[in-house]
Nucleic acid binder design. Structure first.
Length: 480
RNA sequence: GGCCCCAUCGUCUAGAGGCCUAGGACAGCGGCUUUUCAAGCCGCCAACGCGGGUUCGAAUCCCACUGGGGUCACCA
């Protein structure tokens, strides 16, 4: 058993690709097989060099390590298709020599015209194979005349049935099949040719990919037969759609894995959530680690219906994982988050970071922590007071927040500066003055952070330190 | 439009003829807790697309319809 993930480097790894990679990884793990990574960069125009590195980073972040392929090496080097052009051309030549492929000289525009004509006649367009296939001399003459020359595959006119592990038996009628291009005018192979040749040469025995390929798999089947390659196992995955039911596209929001990483999500949560899109272990079980998935995954429990990508549920998964992962792991992930974001939080102080993690228990993403505590590490005059908060907790009422702050100042100057001591001090102040804690904690929060949101007030002040706390309270009082 | 595929709460799904007055989770709504936010706890709302069959019995099997998606590129 060998599976592969074969992305094309046209952008970031998005959640759909991540799920495909995950399932292929799991399949190999589960069956004691190998998981391979190959880059399909046969589109010169859309290729982005830095995309390869990004995809590699994202896969690593998710923990989906591959046994063979890009960077890992292996018996079928190289693993980038742009470096395997000779191999594809040799296979194309083999087909040409056998009369199973032929040159075609129509330009893109001419083909477009032919398609439009077919559409006007309400007919499906099928490329008309010439009775006499052009010779290589004729092809060369056309090239010399400045025409674009491609190579098309001679498709046998027969029904093609594939056995798919998720969808079962699927037949493509012969009437739908026509001679498709396998070698482009620029000398690069098309996806179909390169993909089939590489899967065969690299020993890939099981192909799991998105359902968008299901209706095209006949091409691969026919190509394999012509080339004498064995048939692999096929398994197509239901698609992931956006909440509107449209195909998930990079345009409708940040569906890139990297965007979730930057936004403060845990890879455990993203992986867990994605695994449940189109697959489930049965019963009510939902919380699954990569290790769990490696034990449980199988194509038998794959669904057939498209899934919508529900960010709210992802958030809930993240919240749950954040609440249960060991602190060491959270610390590591938190530091990764900080390295990717510009925040005033000192990323080098592990003890402080652990404190923040504890003090913010219940956080949904690391971004929540940054939003809640960042201001504590900013310069004392670098934050603004939320006007609504000021109105509500500082300036309103007879015994207003400002006066409470003024009364509190002397006590704070002499206080023991630990969370518990500060908490006790404030409680005592409340009792003595017959005030609710809200009447004291909230004015302090606004004074010290500009907002009504922060960790527990004792923790907040302890984190800030006496000097900064007092300075901020005085600044607040001064701008009354 | 041709072809292929799919169809359970708003969402992810459990369900493989009687265990289903359809279960879980997220969201939503209500409440509890309360020094804020988040978290947590309790409760509520909410689905088998429609119509025919088959069967003693159908969410589960069959057919048609409707709806949705995919695919028909010198993109992968």
């Amino acid at each position: 058993m060998k599976t592969r993930f074969a992305p094309s480097p046209t952008g970031y790894l998005h959640v759909g690709g991540a799920r495909t990679a995950l399932f292929n990884y799991l399949m190999a793990r589960r069956r004691g097989g190998r998981f391979l990574l190959r880059i399909e960069d046969t589109d010169v125009a859309r290729h982005q060099e830095d995309a390869i590195d990004k995809i590699v980073q994202d896969l690593r972040w998710l923990g989906l390590n591959w046994d063979e392929g890009l960077e890992a090496g292996g018996p079928a080097e190289p693993y980038r298709q742009s470096q395997r052009l000779d191999i594809y051309r040799a296979h194309v030549q083999k087909l040409l020599d056998a009369g199973q492929a032929y040159y075609a000289m129509e330009s893109t525009q001419e083909l477009e015209t032919m398609r439009e004509a077919a559409a006007a006649r309400k007919e499906a367009f099928k490329y008309p194979r010439p009775a006499a296939l052009p010779t290589s001399e004729q092809a060369q003459a056309a090239r010399d005349a400045g025409r674009e020359v491609v190579v098309r595959f001679v498709c046998p006119a027969e029904d093609v049935t594939i056995q798919d592990d998720a969808f079962g038996s699927v037949t493509m009628p012969a009437a739908e099949i026509d001679d498709f291009i396998i070698l482009k005018a620029d000398g690069y192979p098309t996806y179909h040719l390169a993909n089939v040749v590489d899967d065969a040469l690299m020993g890939v025995t099981y192909i799991m990919r998105g359902q968008e390929f299901l209706a095209q798999t006949w091409r691969h089947v026919l190509l394999r037969r012509a080339l004498g390659f064995a048939e692999p196992g096929y398994c197509h995955l239901p698609l992931i759609m956006d909440m509107q039911g449209r195909k998930l596209s990079k345009r409708d929001g940040d569906v890139e894995v990297h965007a979730f990483r930057v936004a403060g999500y845990l890879s455990e949560a993203l992986l867990n959530f994605i695994a449940l899109l189109g697959w489930n272990p049965g019963g009510d079980r939902e919380k699954l680690s990569l290790a769990d998935l490696e034990q449980l995954f199988g194509p038998d429990r794959l669904g057939k219906t498209n899934a919508k990508f529900d960010r709210d549920k992802l958030l809930a998964f993240n919240t749950d994982w954040a609440a249960t992962l060991p602190e060491d792991r959270l610390l590591e992930a938190f530091k990764d988050f900080l390295s990717l974001n510009d925040t005033p939080i000192p990323a080098g102080d592990d003890d402080l970071l652990r404190t923040l993690l504890r003090v913010c228990k219940g956080f949904r993403t690391f971004a929540d922590i940054a939003a809640k505590t960042g201001v504590l590490f900013a310069p004392d005059d670098a934050y603004a007071y939320d006007p609504k908060a000021v109105e509500k907790v500082l300036s309103k009422g007879e015994r207003n927040g400002y006066s409470v702050l003024g009364d509190l100042l002397p006590a704070l100057e002499a206080a023991d500066w630990t969370p518990a001591a500060l908490e006790d001090l404030l409680k005592g102040f409340c009792e003595k003055n017959a005030l609710g804690m809200g009447k004291v904690a909230q004015p302090l929060r606004v004074a010290v952070t500009g907002t009504t949101v922060s960790p527990a007030i004792g923790e907040t002040l302890a984190l800030l330190g006496r000097a900064k706390t007092l300075a901020r309270i005085r600044r607040c009082l001064a701008q009354r």
